[in-house]
Design a binder for these strands. Structure first.
Length: 400
DNA sequence: GATGGCCTAATTAGGACTTCCGGTGT
DNA sequence: CACACCGGAAGTCCTAATTAGGCCAT
């Protein structure tokens, strides 16, 4: 039986190739952040005032950058398409390897937590869904299936209006459904609006700006190299019957979500990179390239920048964001923070308490514990990026 | 030997696509 | 002509639930 700490650090070694970190090899040793999951949907676009506040409180991460960020973002969009790791856009690895090990640590239902190349993009809790069209009960639309002998049914795709039957570890599977995938893309500034964009966020209408690219991303995620828009489109059309999507009449490549989560990050044209109209060249190029998982840090970086500093002016955001979550973060030397983190792990027995953690190898000031409690804790991110310091962390935490 | 509890592997049912296709519309 | 779009049909993949069988204790 693996210990929790083993799992955590196995996870780290699986995903971090230190030789590939390059200039970012001084990333903090351990980043353990915990966010109240109702706010995860807005995680990717934390409010500026929050970020400024954090800057005052905590040491700024080393990989903060200015102009670099723009380039990284542009490159990241391509890299995103070239990634070999199919689960980069989902928490598959988290839920398979990490979450189950926290059996008695996480006590709050984690319905669906997903991660993009730039970190957590969205967590979809069914209670957060609101229906745009309540006329058609999904259950009615779904009843076309064959009726066999009664049996406990497995968890179905958590469609917006359906009560999730998953347990706290996403028992319904680690799969990221296509509609979830699309929503993630729509919340990912590396992809939206370049490849997919909202045309009317209020009504859930979006357009596949580059259908080939989106299909390819989906194929990448599903490990289906032959995926194309025609195939993905068939899956999308099945969503009509199930009441998840509608087709917007008369507009090509335009679809509509019948329901949307309340806390959705809406990236509009002004936010991202210039959209491309069915320009697939970069994708083909990239796929033939020797792509590897080391591409991920660039996108991570952009997220970190967003969190720790106000977004660059030229990316003037037009997010329609819910109020910024009460998120507190603390940075401190590894050893002291490790002890706190250890305590934190125990505190997770109390679902009403949450902290946001950041353990930085070179952090100077031991910060005060985060103010809590924040309701409904949910692990949102755990990254280990320096083996030696991580080892320190383990020893200090007493779990190694 | 019979019974019951526990564990594990194999089987089965069913959801979510995926693939293929023929057809229509723009 | 290319592409988007439609929906039927059959297939694949994956997962949860169920079942069967082995082992052990009583």
């Amino acid at each position: 039986m693996l210990q929790q700490s083993e799992l955590i650090f196995d996870f780290a070694s699986d995903h971090v190739n230190m030789s590939q970190l390059g200039p970012y090899s001084d990333y903090p040793a351990v980043i353990v952040e915990q966010l109240p999951h109702p706010h995860l949907l807005s995680y990717g676009g934390l409010a500026c005032e929050q970020s400024q506040h954090h800057q005052q409180l905590f040491k700024v991460e080393q990989y903060e950058s200015g102009e670099e960020e723009t380039m990284e973002t542009l490159v990241a969009a391509d890299l995103l398409l070239n990634m070999d790791c199919p689960d980069t856009l989902s928490l598959e690895h988290y839920s398979q390897t990490f979450l189950p090990s926290l059996g008695d640590v996480i006590t709050t239902p984690v319905t669906q937590v997903t991660v993009s190349a730039e970190g957590i993009v969205g967590a979809i809790d069914q209670q957060q869904w609101h229906s745009l069209h309540t006329k058609k009960p999904v259950s009615q639309l779904q009843s076309k299936k064959r009726a066999r002998k009664s049996r406990h049914r497995r968890a179905e795709s958590p469609t917006p209006d359906i009560v999730v039957k998953k347990d706290k570890y996403n028992k319904g599977g680690n799969t990221l459904y296509l509609w979830q995938f699309l929503m993630e893309l729509l919340q990912d500034r590396q992809v939206c609006p370049r490849y997919i964009k909202w045309t009317n966020p209020q009504t859930g209408i979006f357009k596949l700006v580059n259908s080939k690219a989106v299909a390819r991303l989906w194929g990448k995620h599903k490990n289906k190299p032959d995926m194309n828009y025609e195939t993905m489109g068939r899956a999308l059309r099945y969503y009509y019957q199930r009441g998840i999507l509608n087709k917007v009449e008369g507009q090509r490549l335009v679809y509509q979500f019948t329901s949307l989560p309340n806390h959705m990050i809406y990236i509009t044209d002004g936010d991202g990179i210039k959209e491309e109209e069915e320009d697939d060249e970069d994708i083909d190029e990239g796929v033939s390239d020797d792509s590897d998982d080391s591409t991920v840090p660039s996108s991570d970086q952009s997220v970190e920048d967003e969190e720790d500093s106000p977004p660059p002016q030229k990316k003037t955001s037009s997010y329609v964001r819910p109020p910024a979550p009460q998120r507190t973060r603390l940075a401190s030397p590894v050893l002291s923070t490790a002890r706190r983190c250890h305590a934190f792990c125990h505190q997770q027995h109390d679902p009403g308490t949450a902290f946001a953690y950041r353990v930085s190898r070179d952090a100077a000031d031991p910060a005060e514990p985060a103010e809590g409690p924040v309701p409904a804790p949910c692990w949102s991110r755990l990254r280990l990026q320096n083996r030696s310091a991580a080892g320190q962390f383990v020893r200090a935490a007493g779990c190694g």
